[in-house]
Amino acid sequence: MNAARLMIRLILPAALAIFSAAGLTGCASLGKVTEVVAAVGVATGQVTEEQAESAVRTATAVAKASEDITPEQEYYIGRSVAATLLGKYKPVDDAELTEYLNTLGQALAMASDRPETFGGYRFLVLDSDEINAFAAPGGLILITRGMLGLCRNEDQLAAVLAHEIGHVQHRHGLQSISKSRITAAISIAAMEAGKQLGGKDLAEAVNAFEGTIDDVTQTLVVNGYSRAAEREADLAAVRILHRVGYNPNALIEMLEAMGRGLKPGGLDFAKTHPKPSDRIKVVRPEIARLAAPPAPPPKRQKRFDNAVALPAK
């Protein structure tokens, strides 16, 4: 039997099983797997039965792909996702603002259910009028100037950052990898088979890595997370705000501001998030159960105004 065909015959059922388990039937997804399998087959020329079996074994291992990604691997995925976003949007180079944002953000991250990630939580403002914020896996969080402009006080900014920390805490970015394409499957298959290809393995792994970065970036910028994921991030935000001592009502205030500020059909938060009014319905009962913190001292508003007074465009 033709060796490449044997490999496809062996690996496709496993790949199909994984995709159907994940509820995915997209033609593009299956096409990608077949393509890579074919590429491996062609590249080897001769594929032994042992090699084919190892490909099946590794593909099966991918069923739990996102939870098997170690925090160190998550860190490298997050770095490249953030670098990709920073290639699209330029950052605001303002040392005082960046320091304020990181102090606030890291104080909030400490109170999350996942205060420790491989490289820690970091925050940066993007120079864009869009109303948006992104959490790259592992804790690199980016917020646009447009979103910052909607915040009227520190508690509201804290609400936006806490929502993004919630996505990192729940590893939503990594889940988008397995849901959208299970690129890790391709990576593992390519790497294990690749070890016997001599020189080819690196190129295959880089391809798989780039595919993974595309999956996460596409989810952050274009498709958005599931409603369930947004709900988890909102509820995490309420808990974080309450634990630190910020007013969780600030999340409702921000959602109301976003409801007013977003243009329907716009290319920002409106596209990737459920309607603000629906999100308010989810968090309001949770917030109602919590005692409101005392009114903030003037100093909190002053430092917010000082740091967030953005340079004129």
């Binding site: 074994r57 590794t58 291992a61 098997d68 990604i69 170690t70 160190e72 691997q73 998550e74 490298y76 995925i77 890790a184 990576s187 593992i188 390519a190 790497m191 294990e192 070890k195 792994a205 880089v206 798989a208 890595f209 993974t212």
Partner: peptide
């Protein structure tokens, strides 16, 4: 081995 070789490094 497969996990170590996932390529995210």
């Amino acid at each position: 081995v497969a996990l170590a070789g996932k390529g995210f490094n």
